[in-house]
Measured scan of single mutants.
Amino acid sequence: DELEKRVKKIARKLNLSLDQVEEWLKRNNNDELVEAVKRLKKK
């Protein structure tokens, strides 16, 4: 979905793993995208 695409884009842009992106999003209080990261990690 759109949020998952955004997460992947962030990960690529910042050259981070999904775990690192998740931490980064949590620090930025971006719950919506944190949920998207969790969905991606399950895939």
Score class of each variant (00 low, 15 high):
Leu14Tyr: 14
Leu16Asp: 02
Leu3His: 08
Leu33Trp: 05
Glu4Val: 08
Glu35Thr: 05
Val37Cys: 15
Leu16Gly: 02
Lys5Met: 13
Trp24Arg: 04
Ala11Arg: 05
Leu25Ser: 02
Lys38Phe: 00
Glu32Ser: 10
Arg39Ile: 04
Asn28Gln: 13
Leu18Trp: 11
Asn15Trp: 06
Asp19Ile: 05
Val34Gly: 03
Arg27Val: 13
Glu4Asp: 04
Leu40Asn: 02
Leu25His: 00
Lys26Asp: 05
Ala11Thr: 05
Asp1Thr: 10
Arg12Val: 10
Glu35Met: 06
Leu14Ile: 04
Lys5Pro: 01
Lys8Phe: 05
Arg6Cys: 15
Asn15Leu: 04
Lys42Pro: 04
Leu40Arg: 03
Asn15Gly: 15
Lys41Met: 09
Leu14Ser: 03
Glu35Ala: 10
Lys26His: 08
Asp31Ala: 13
Ala36Tyr: 03
Val21Leu: 15
Lys5Asp: 14
Arg27Lys: 14
Lys5Cys: 15
Asn29Arg: 10
Arg12Asn: 11
Asn30Glu: 15
Lys38Ile: 10
Gln20Gly: 07
Leu25Cys: 12
Asn30Ser: 11
Arg27Trp: 12
Leu16Pro: 00
Leu14Lys: 04
Glu32Thr: 09
Asn15Cys: 15
Val21Ala: 03
Val34Ala: 12
Asp19Pro: 03
Arg6Asp: 04
Ala36Glu: 03
Glu35Lys: 08
Lys42Tyr: 03
Glu2Asn: 08
Asn28His: 13
Glu4Trp: 05
Ile10Ala: 03
Leu40His: 04
Asp31Ile: 15
Asp1Arg: 10
Leu3Thr: 05
Gln20Ser: 04
Leu18Ile: 07
Arg12Phe: 06
Lys8Gly: 09
Glu23Thr: 04
Ala11Asp: 02
Leu25Pro: 00
Val34Arg: 08
Glu4Arg: 07
Lys43Asn: 07
Lys5His: 11
Lys8Arg: 13
Ile10Trp: 02
Glu32Asn: 07
Leu14His: 10
Asn30Leu: 15
Asp19Lys: 06
Leu3Met: 13
Lys26Leu: 09
Lys8Gln: 14
Glu2Val: 12
Lys5Leu: 13
Ile10His: 01
Glu35Asp: 08
Asn28Thr: 14
Leu16Ile: 08
Lys9Pro: 00
Asn28Gly: 14
Leu33Ile: 03
Asn15Asp: 08
Ala11Met: 15
Lys42Met: 07
Glu22Ser: 03
Lys5Ser: 11
Ser17Glu: 06
Asn15Met: 08
Leu3Trp: 10
Lys9Val: 13
Lys5Phe: 09
Lys41Asn: 04
Ala11Leu: 14
Asn30Gln: 15
Glu4Tyr: 05
Lys41Cys: 08
Ala36Cys: 08
Trp24Leu: 13
Glu32Pro: 06
Ala11Ile: 13
Asn30Val: 13
Glu4His: 03
Asn15Val: 02
Lys43His: 09
Asp19Phe: 04
Lys13Gly: 08
Lys9Ser: 14
Arg27Ser: 13
Asn28Ala: 11
Trp24Phe: 13
Leu33Val: 02
Lys43Cys: 10
Asn30Cys: 15
Arg12Ser: 12
Val37Asp: 02
Glu32Gln: 10
Lys5Gln: 13
Asp1Gly: 07
Leu14Gln: 04
Arg6Ile: 15
Asp31Gly: 08
Arg6Trp: 14
Glu23Pro: 00
Glu4Ile: 12
Lys41Glu: 07
Ile10Phe: 01
Arg6Ser: 08
Arg6Thr: 13
Glu35Trp: 01
Asn28Trp: 14
Asn15Phe: 04
Glu4Gly: 04
Asp1Leu: 12
Ala11Val: 07
Val37Glu: 02
Lys13His: 12
Ala11Gly: 03
Leu40Phe: 02
Leu18Tyr: 10
Glu35Pro: 02
